[in-house]
């Protein structure tokens, strides 16, 4: 017994465990990573079973992986950012419209029997990850390949690559970064120099993610009043623009709740309102932005989300004792 107590005393317990960080890890990070690795593994298996775009199983598995992505997409710090893993998994928006060209180039250069997972990892991010798979499964320019075509090889390589990347991210969290977050401010923690920096990282990630929805996920298809850009909507090919937005908002709310579970009343009310509005858009691929009514509805969500972000910034920063930086959003 005495030995056991002595052993327990030697465990490197963090001196100042931050309940905020513990909640983020327990409620968002761990379950999010588990779901994402499972879903990308299932996608890889589905592609092995049947790589064709006509496969309902493959499409369902891809949709499952896409859904699961939103569970970790808000983690804009740590393993997803350390080696461009975010871009590898989910390179969007494709502002220059390079994806179709890059896919066509890869497909044209394919030689039967030359499937090399290692070589695939050096390919541009526009042919890798969830959105490249969306093009292969739903873009009529690409989704007619047979089992012996380059398209099949690409789908198998890319889904395996995605699954491997997901596991790398999860492993990096489990073996290293969760501890780095928990020991923020400890001597020897080169990443987070003060305890507050861990909270700061999560808070900033949330606000950046909200901004991403405002400016990119909603802002890109809205375009301008004169020139709406429905073709720039995320998830247009697969008809899941609205679903992606809804899942993204749900993930933001979950992260906000993990950060500040009680007391952020206005933020909570705003999330309820914005999610209610998004759920009633009735515009699966945002093509509605091309007509005034549809545009008005999506614009209303954007406005409500912009207000939510301001409220969340005030309420959460006060509760957490942190502030928002300004360099990442508007450099010069």
């Amino acid at each position: 017994m005495r030995l056991l107590i002595a052993a327990l005393c030697l465990l490197p317990l963090p001196l100042r465990a931050d309940p905020v960080i513990d909640r983020v890890l327990d409620e968002v990070v761990s379950p999010g990573l588990a779901v994402f690795t499972t879903a990308t593994g299932a996608l890889e298996a589905a592609a092995v079973a049947d790589c064709r775009a006509t496969s309902e199983d493959l499409r369902a598995a891809w949709a499952g992986a896409m859904d699961a992505w939103f569970g970790i997409a808000d983690l804009r710090f740590g393993p997803l950012e350390d080696g461009a893993q975010r871009q590898i998994i989910a390179y969007w928006p494709d502002n220059g419209g390079h994806r179709p060209k890059a896919l066509a180039r890869w497909l044209a250069g394919w030689q039967p029997g030359a499937e090399d997972a290692a070589a695939f990892r050096t390919q541009p991010v526009s042919v890798r990850g969830l959105y490249a798979m969306e093009s292969m499964l739903y873009d009529p320019r690409f989704n007619t390949y047979t089992k012996s075509d380059a398209g099949c090889a690409l789908v198998r390589l890319a889904t395996a690559d995605l699954s491997a990347t997901a596991h790398e991210v999860a492993t990096a969290w489990e073996e290293d970064f969760a501890t780095v977050l928990r020991t923020a401010g400890d001597a020897g923690n080169a990443r987070f120099l003060d305890a507050i920096e861990a909270r700061q990282a999560v808070f900033t990630a949330l606000l950046t993610s909200l901004q991403f929805d405002i400016v990119e996920r909603i802002g890109l298809p809205l375009g301008t009043v004169e020139t709406p850009r429905p073709t720039r909507a995320e998830g247009r090919l697969s008809g899941r623009s609205q679903r992606n937005l809804e899942l993204s908002l749900a993930a933001h709310e979950a992260l906000a709740r993990a950060l500040v579970p009680e007391g952020a009343t206005l933020t909570g009310e705003d999330f309820e309102r914005v999610r209610w509005m998004a759920a009633r858009l009735d515009d699966p691929d945002f093509s509605g932005v091309a007509d005034p009514t549809g545009r008005f509805r999506l614009e209303a969500v954007q406005t409500a989300l912009t207000l939510l972000r301001t409220v969340a910034n005030e309420e959460l920063s006060a509760a957490l004792g942190v502030t928002m930086g300004l360099n990442a959003l508007d450099g010069d």
């Binding site: 120099l193 003060d194 507050i196 700061q200 942190v322 502030t323 930086g325 300004l326 360099n327």
Partner: peptide, 27 residues
């Protein structure tokens, strides 16, 4: 310097000292 008020001195890629102030350092 960063937007969260930290001023960090690094040597050989490692932080060796830092200060923090309630302000967002600009570019």
């Amino acid at each position: 310097t960063d937007g969260f008020g930290a001023f960090v001195v690094t040597e050989g890629g490692r932080p060796v000292a830092h200060t923090r102030a309630p302000r967002a350092w600009d570019n």
